[in-house]
Design a binder for these strands. Structure first.
Lengths: 125, 125
DNA sequence: GCACGTGTATTAATGCAATAATACACATGA
DNA sequence: TCATGTGTATTATTGCATTAATACACGTGC
């Protein structure tokens, strides 16, 4: 069963997108594995204190992307074969790296300064 | 006169917040300097193709933070003494570094891997 | 069989960013 | 002086993302 204990939604973006990102990053990083079982939509909505439809929306998007498999009456299962995981990992890392580089460049930093700054705050988070 | 040619709003957050962030990062990075003149609210709204009230909202928030000075009849002026710039720079860099570190950690990367990834995409953006 | 938990679908309600319209106050320059 | 452009303020409206409420369909296990 996938754990959502480390999932802390904020108000910076829609909750359903945060759930989507949480699961995708979990799969990409290996914390969530192929054939893992997801909590039911209702159970997760109670756990997170949100509306069941919000969970439903996130799960249906995961289904559209082929990352989970759903059927009536039973909880959904993660569908993440190795090649899919690698592809997802590359996508996420590339997107993160690009946005991060853009951010630091916008701040007028050099690559060396950016790396140093990252190192300075690495242990803090 | 502050230039907004590099300002490219997207639909990831409210436009007024993007304007706010654009100006703050500009000040922090030195691209926008103390006593620089801002375009008028109406002129900027025409330039960006948005409603004057959206610009007004961003500018009033900048005024609340003490980063611009406004008076009737004349365009607003940047108020950014050196100590304020340094403070702003620290705030922005710290926030960016923390969120970046958290992001890479969430992806299961080590500091070395994160730095390498950043370097790999640095020139691309 | 059937109670229960599950996935799925539809519709309504809510909140808020963005827009819109308008009015007033002030400064500048012809 | 006065026309013009500026900042400021108020109120209403629109559109859409999000949440909410509800009903229906299906599978499991007693």
């Amino acid at each position: 069963m996938i754990s959502f204990v480390s999932f802390k939604p904020d108000n910076s973006s829609p909750i359903y997108l945060q759930i989507l990102a949480f699961v995708k990053r979990g799969i990409a990083s290996g914390k969530i594995k192929d054939s893992d079982e997801l909590p039911s939509r209702r159970a997760l909505s109670v756990l997170l204190g949100i509306n069941p439809n919000t969970v439903q929306r996130a799960f249906s998007m995961l289904e559209e992307e082929g990352l989970i498999s759903s059927s009536h009456g039973v909880t959904s299962i993660v569908t993440a074969p190795p090649e899919r995981v690698n592809k997802l990992k590359e996508e996420i890392l590339a997107a993160d790296a690009k946005s991060t580089a853009a951010l630091f460049k916008q701040n007028g930093l050099s690559l060396e300064q950016a790396a140093a700054l990252l190192a300075a705050y690495w242990e803090e988070v």
